[in-house]
């Protein structure tokens, strides 16, 4: 499994695209928001946590179809399925490497973009924490969506349609933590829910995704 993780990370670094594209997308979305809602710093400060969360979510969505598609196209998936690695483990590793190449950089970049949107000072730590807790769930749920659509020629759009409703709870709790954090409110319960979703999804989703992959491999 470590070998697979190392290979996927090497591939992501060598192919470029991986980090760069998601981050650039995030940056562009956040920069476009003030053009759409006007430069009023007070309004921007109010919507900043939500906009940053939504931007991170969309940036995450962008690279989901690559989780399995590349290995699918060159036949590696067949070989991985007959390797001694359980398919559930393959899914977990793939989701982890997706998070390391998109979720983690997005989390680290978010405070910088927070400055652009006038995010109130107390909000920064909570924004980073909520993204750090929430983006793994986005990657794992996304891996399930990618497993469902991997056999399809034009699965990208369908993947978004399938995955976005599944993202609702994560988005609600994540953005709630960031919002309450920036307004200095109590945020224990949404934080606990967010962590609960991430952990629950990490524990159970690989089974569903592996089942979908097995069906697609037939």
């Amino acid at each position: 499994m470590i070998a697979l993780l190392r290979r996927d990370l090497t591939l992501a670094v060598r192919a470029g695209g991986g980090f760069g594209l998601g981050l650039a997308f995030f940056l562009v979305v956040v920069i476009l928001v003030p053009f759409a809602v006007g430069p009023d710093t007070e309004i921007l400060a109010r919507i900043a946590p939500g906009v940053l969360w939504l931007g991170a979510l969309l940036a995450c969505l962008l690279s989901l179809d690559r989780i399995f598609a590349l290995d699918w196209e060159d036949g590696s998936m067949d070989l991985l399925a007959t390797a001694p690695l359980p398919l559930e483990g393959v899914v977990a590793v793939k989701a982890l490497s997706h998070w390391l190449t998109t979720g983690l950089p997005l989390t680290l970049a978010a405070p910088v973009l927070g400055v652009l949107l006038n995010l109130p000072t107390p909000g920064f730590a909570w924004l980073v924490l909520s993204l750090a807790l929430g983006t793994p769930a986005l990657s794992i749920i996304g891996a399930f969506g990618a497993a469902l659509t991997v056999g399809l020629k034009r699965g990208g759009l369908l993947l978004s349609l399938l995955v976005l409703p599944l993202y609702v709870p994560t988005l609600i709790f994540g953005a709630e933590v960031a919002r309450r954090g920036s307004e200095g409110l109590e945020l224990g319960s949404p934080l606990a829910f967010l962590a609960g979703i991430s952990l629950g999804v990490a524990a159970l989703m690989p089974y569903a995704a592996a089942a979908a992959l097995r069906v697609n491999l037939r």
């Binding site: 697979l4 190392r6 090497t10 060159d74 036949g75 590696s76 067949d78 070989l79 001694p84 690695l85």
Partner: peptide, 23 residues
Amino acid sequence: GHLDGVKAMLTVTENLTFWARCF
């Protein structure tokens, strides 16, 4: 199968080393 499962971005040794570790 028909496809080799070879990663274009990795060298020959890296490809083989990965599968060796995998198995």
